[in-house]
């Protein structure tokens, strides 16, 4: 069963938006899909949108597939399909924004489609790409597994074509063995993909953004500490940027073992471990913990353990 049984040339252009986090390989997935589509005789383009953020931050990538040359050079606003490489993104980003009513959401999740709440009821496919990747690739890089689910759910591309592109593209960069394994991850995901409809209960509030017009923008873009309807701006305003979604693991400290040597507090690159001076204690604010694990690694008495941030 495909959500999209018709071949590309009957439906016109097919547009895909990938949601991932820096480091998960969303761009590579978009490119691999494009290459596979071209190998099937279609025309395809893939391109990234790079934000300013680094590893772990949300990123976007796009693929367009058509039977004829594609001239459009804009971003994709009304995709036929969205692919979500990391289901933690569902909490903060409206991943189905602009998705066509008959469009498909493909989500890396251990849940069934019926248990995924996308804020609207739409065709949804899920696959636990993370566990497949961990098992086959020994790393939580889910881009190839999720492509298997894409092939299964959309029917836009044959799984064999994807396997071919993956082997070539990953093999060329990382060695034939890695290519084979990634192709296997795609095939495994293809077979394990569940299809159904999402739930449509939650209301995702669009993140407010301060968008001053040209008269309101401070002269020369120079900012002092300020507050807008959308929150803080200027020096120190990053404090409103919660980055916990980046974390796969988070530290848990055993107070009994802790000697208050303060090394974790010193090393934490985020500044998310605080001293509570009146109690001579430490507190970790998980809102800002990206789960790097330096604190646990450096603790001289082994008082910190890293645990999965989301189960």
């Amino acid at each position: 069963m495909y959500f999209y049984p018709a071949p590309v040339n009957k439906k016109g252009m097919f547009e895909v938006r990938f949601h991932g986090r820096g480091g998960q390989g969303a761009v590579m997935a978009a490119q691999t899909l494009a290459e596979a589509a071209v190998n099937e005789g279609n025309y395809a383009v893939a391109f990234p949108f790079f934000g300013a953020e680094r590893r772990g931050a949300p990123v976007l990538a796009f693929t367009r597939i058509d039977s004829k040359k594609i001239f459009s050079k804009t971003q994709v606003y009304n995709p036929d399909c969205v692919v979500v490489l990391d289901d933690s993104l569902l909490d903060t980003i409206d991943v189905v924004s602009g998705l066509k009513p008959e469009g498909i959401a493909i989500i890396n999740s251990k849940e069934k489609p019926e248990d995924i709440d996308l804020g609207k009821i739409i065709n949804t496919a899920t696959v636990n790409a993370t566990s497949i990747a961990l098992e086959i690739l020994k790393a939580p890089i889910t881009n190839t597994a999720i492509l298997g689910a894409f092939a299964k759910a959309t029917g836009i591309i044959k799984i064999e074509s994807l396997e071919g592109s993956i082997k070539r593209k990953f093999g060329e960069k990382l060695g034939a063995k890695v290519g084979e394994r990634n192709a296997l991850a795609a095939r495994t995901a293809y077979e394990k993909t569940l299809m159904g409809k999402s739930r449509g209960v939650k209301k995702l509030e669009a993140r407010k953004q301060w968008l001053p017009d040209y008269q309101e923008i401070p002269i020369g873009g120079a900012l002092i500490e300020g507050k807008t309807e959308a929150g803080l701006i200027g020096p120190g305003s990053f404090i409103e940027n919660k980055v916990s979604g980046w974390a796969t693991y988070r530290p848990v400290r055993d107070k009994e073992k802790c000697t208050m040597c303060l090394l974790c507090w010193f090393y934490c690159p985020e500044g998310t471990i605080h001293r509570i001076s009146d109690r001579g204690d430490l507190m970790t604010n998980y809102d800002y913990c990206k789960g790097c694990g330096v604190c646990a690694n450096e603790c001289p008495v082994d008082a910190i353990k890293m645990v999965r941030a989301r189960v």
Partner: peptide, 18 residues
């Protein structure tokens, strides 16, 4: 140098600047 900056997890630069 507040939390919520967007350096990669474990960034040695962020650690040193802070």
């Amino acid at each position: 140098f507040t939390a919520g900056h967007t350096a990669c997890p474990g960034c040695g630069v962020a650690m040193s600047i802070r």
